[in-house]
Design a binder for these strands. Structure first.
Lengths: 110, 110
DNA sequence: ATTATATATCATGATATTGTGATATGTAAA
DNA sequence: TTTACATATCACAATATCATGATATATAAT
């Protein structure tokens, strides 16, 4: 490894941090959870999570623009689904790691 | 899958979101990158990243309390390292997923 | 055509997070 | 026993993020 961060690496890490922001929010994780076993309409996500429509829609916009989820329209409805299987993998590993971490520990991260 | 989020799941997802906050910050990712191939002292991390001492120290405190990195003291120096191999795995998969995502896409996540 | 339903957008206030600078603490060398 | 070095802490300003409520748009049913 180099002894200093290079420009390439800096740009890459900035991207990576943005990527992880997609998962670093409770509401968005609830959306991911909604979609864990397949596509859902916005209304179904709203019902599943109990969150307001605008909240869901705002988050979905963000997740869609970031290519973390994708949307397809069918009449009145828009179906969303997780775009990449690797995302489910990441969420799975995260769940494993957290098992090893005691409940209170992560509270430094509000 | 249930048609609504249960209490267990809600608590779990809150934890998961905190976990991901650890990776959702550029400065912290630079720290992780510093540690990718083994332990380093705080000073080495400072030199590698070019960040201020207090910034590094503040982030390390957070990462340590969250059990994402661990510290060991040797005289004046404190060596930090990534605590769980799974964390490196997650970072690796994230890198892969990002390759598929065009540069501008993630800009919704500031 | 009008109405109801589904979803998106947007401005804004509230809240959370980050970086900085100053200072404190601990360890070892001189 | 001072001085230099390594690291931690903390308050506060700057910035980023989120939720809300109001409004807009688009589609389908009546």
């Amino acid at each position: 490894m180099e002894i200093q961060l290079g420009n390439e690496e800096i740009m890459r890490l900035k991207l990576v941090s943005k990527f992880f922001k997609g998962f670093a929010d409770y509401s968005r994780l609830c959306i991911f959870q909604s979609l864990m076993d397949g596509e859902k309409t916005v209304t179904e996500i709203i019902d599943y999570t109990g969150f307001s429509q605008s909240k869901i829609s705002n988050h979905l916009k963000c997740l869609r623009e970031s290519d973390l989820v994708e949307a397809r329209q069918d009449g009145k409805f828009i179906y969303y689904e997780i775009k990449d299987e690797k995302i489910k993998t990441i969420l799975g590993i995260a769940a494993e790691v957290i098992k090893d971490v005691s409940e209170e520990k992560l509270n430094c991260m509000k």
